[in-house]
Amino acid sequence: MADYETIRTGRIGARTLQIDEGLRAYMNKVYGLMSVGMLITGAAAWAVSGLAMSTVPTDYQIGAGRYLTDFGYALYASPIKWLVMLAPLIMVFAFGAVLNRISAAGAQLYFYAYAALMGLSLSSIFLVFTGMSIAQTFLVTAIAFAGLSLWGYTTKRDISGWGSFLIMGVIGLLVAMIVNWFLASEAVAFAISAIGVLIFAGLTAYDTQNIKNTYIAHASHGDSEWLGKAAIMGALNLYLDFINMFMFLLQFLGNRE
């Protein structure tokens, strides 16, 4: 009987060790995919803004010694701007449906394409804020994100109940932003930014724990293709948490041109 218990305990311990090793590799993959997506977004935003703005006088002046090129005018001032703004939103909503129909490699390519399109959409921040303030806000966001994600991964507290409240908060935030589009109230905009930072800070911790729990729940099934797609979806969720927290913080910390 003692031998049986010893063997049984040994098997459980080995299985737990295997899951722990797999979880570390899985989380490294999630963060790696997210990091590549962030690099693509940053590079695309910087490159597009460089093509859109010029110090050489054109017909489209946007500040002291700052002008839009023809490409910049088409991107930011023509009706094309609505396509640039809405295309990432359409792609992210379509991702769930696309994910079930393509391979993990295809899903990864889709994520990178989305990150590039997001970079195109976010390139306008270089017209509004100074490059130094953008870099400083990015650093603050990165530090906050790392701390929140680490807490979500290591905490023993079950925060799965946060999900429904946070999603409701995001919906309310979107409604408030649409309403303030017409009101143009600085006080409301300030409140939206503050609430937005808190909501996406909470989502960062929540999504991290959810990614961890998803792996633990499915690790024993051996479905590597499904786990590969789940890692990409997890990377997308954390990517969106980071981007949104960065954009809301930029409203506080960014110095305008």
Rank of each mutant, 00 (worst) to 15 (best):
E257W: 11
G152V: 02
R256N: 07
L173S: 09
M132R: 15
T137C: 01
L198D: 03
A64F: 09
D241W: 11
G32M: 08
A25T: 15
Y4I: 15
L89S: 12
A45M: 04
K156N: 15
R256A: 09
Y31W: 15
V30L: 10
V30R: 10
Q108Y: 12
D158N: 14
N180D: 02
T55L: 05
G222A: 09
S160C: 06
M34H: 13
W151V: 03
L127S: 12
A2G: 11
I171A: 15
L203G: 08
W181A: 14
A205F: 01
A217L: 13
G147P: 06
I232F: 03
M233C: 02
S193T: 12
L250H: 02
M168P: 05
I243W: 00
A44T: 14
G119T: 08
G13P: 02
A184H: 12
L183F: 13
Y67A: 07
S133R: 06
L17G: 13
M34N: 07
G169R: 01
G72C: 08
A64T: 08
L203N: 07
G65Q: 13
L120P: 09
K212V: 04
F111A: 02
G202E: 09
Y114E: 01
I199N: 00
I19T: 12
V98P: 00
E5H: 13
V179Q: 01
A43S: 13
A64L: 06
E186D: 13
V140F: 10
T58H: 01
N28P: 09
S54H: 00
I62K: 02
W181G: 15
F93H: 07
T55A: 11
L127K: 04
G22H: 05
A64E: 12
G32V: 09
A144G: 10
Y67C: 02
A94N: 03
Y110I: 03
I211N: 06
P79L: 05
V188M: 04
Y73A: 06
A113F: 08
T130E: 13
F145A: 14
I125C: 10
L122Q: 03
D70H: 14
Y4H: 14
V197I: 15
L240A: 05
Y206H: 13
F129G: 07
K156C: 01
G152T: 02
Q108G: 12
A116H: 05
W181N: 06
T137D: 00
D223S: 11
G32F: 08
R11V: 15
E225K: 00
H221F: 12
V84C: 07
I167W: 05
A194V: 14
L227T: 00
T69L: 00
Q209Y: 11
I62G: 00
Y31G: 11
L120T: 10
R101D: 05
A64I: 13
A144Y: 11
G196Q: 05
A191H: 00
D223E: 13
A230G: 02
N100K: 15
M245Y: 08
I143V: 15
G22A: 03
L150Y: 10
L173M: 15
N244M: 08
F129E: 07
G42R: 11
G152Y: 04
M168E: 06
V98Q: 00
T58N: 03
F246Q: 09
L83T: 14
G65V: 09
M53Q: 03
A116W: 01
L51C: 07
F111D: 01
A105M: 11
I199G: 01
V197E: 03
Y31T: 12
G72F: 01
D3A: 14
T204D: 08
D241L: 06
A187P: 02
